[in-house]
Simulated assay, not measured.
Amino acid sequence: MESQNIQDFLKEPETFYGLENKYDRIVSVLGGSSQVGYIQSDIDLIKITRKGLPVSVVVSISNILGISMEKMSNLLHISHRTIQRKHDDELLSVYSTEQILEIAEVISRGIEVLGTLGTFTKWVHREIRALDNKKPIDYLDTGFGIQMVKDLLGRIEHGVY
């Protein structure tokens, strides 16, 4: 994703809020269709996972979450040095791509539930009692942790403590 596109997303998220479905929101979080192609179903997510996402998406997601590339590499279980060696257009592995797509879905859902990117970012870095007083960001490194965070967002949406 171009640096300008991420800055536009961070400064003017209104474009995100007008998107109709989760697939459009995920594409928006990942930098638009020029980065990932079009996603209209879970089948498309599977195809993208098998093909791989470009490394530039990792930088975009770390910027959106407000975390270092070191922390981002920990979430993806890739060494920071490995990410640094790759060119922006090189593709990630199936596992890393799937992890990025799951994280993008959490971001999308978080903005939808909490209202703004800023509110979501603050929330994801805050210790949460329901997560054993740990930060949601610390659970984004496994599928089970991501599911816990999505479940928590669902509980927040429905007013269930």
Rank of each mutant, 00 (worst) to 15 (best):
24 D>P: 02
128 I>Q: 12
145 G>Y: 05
121 T>A: 13
72 M>Q: 02
25 R>Y: 07
66 G>A: 08
2 E>M: 07
19 L>G: 10
57 V>L: 01
135 K>I: 02
35 Q>C: 14
110 G>N: 03
138 D>H: 05
108 S>W: 05
38 Y>D: 15
59 V>N: 08
158 H>S: 15
129 R>D: 11
5 N>G: 14
123 W>I: 07
26 I>Q: 10
87 H>M: 07
93 S>G: 08
66 G>F: 00
124 V>D: 12
103 I>K: 03
158 H>T: 06
144 F>K: 13
157 E>S: 12
4 Q>H: 04
38 Y>M: 14
22 K>F: 01
137 I>S: 08
153 L>T: 00
125 H>A: 10
9 F>E: 10
32 G>Y: 04
30 L>V: 04
135 K>T: 09
97 T>M: 05
88 D>V: 13
33 S>A: 15
83 I>D: 01
17 Y>E: 13
74 N>K: 15
21 N>K: 03
4 Q>D: 13
139 Y>N: 06
37 G>K: 03
28 S>D: 08
151 D>K: 01
126 R>D: 12
155 R>Y: 04
26 I>F: 02
148 M>D: 09
65 L>D: 09
134 K>D: 02
33 S>L: 00
85 R>M: 10
131 L>T: 03
140 L>V: 07
9 F>C: 14
41 S>M: 06
62 S>C: 01
32 G>M: 06
107 I>T: 04
55 V>A: 02
119 T>F: 00
130 A>K: 02
26 I>A: 13
104 A>I: 09
98 E>T: 03
61 I>S: 03
18 G>V: 14
133 N>H: 14
45 L>F: 07
79 S>M: 04
72 M>S: 06
124 V>H: 12
110 G>T: 01
1 M>R: 03
154 G>V: 04
117 L>H: 14
136 P>M: 08
136 P>F: 02
138 D>E: 14
20 E>S: 13
90 E>D: 14
61 I>T: 04
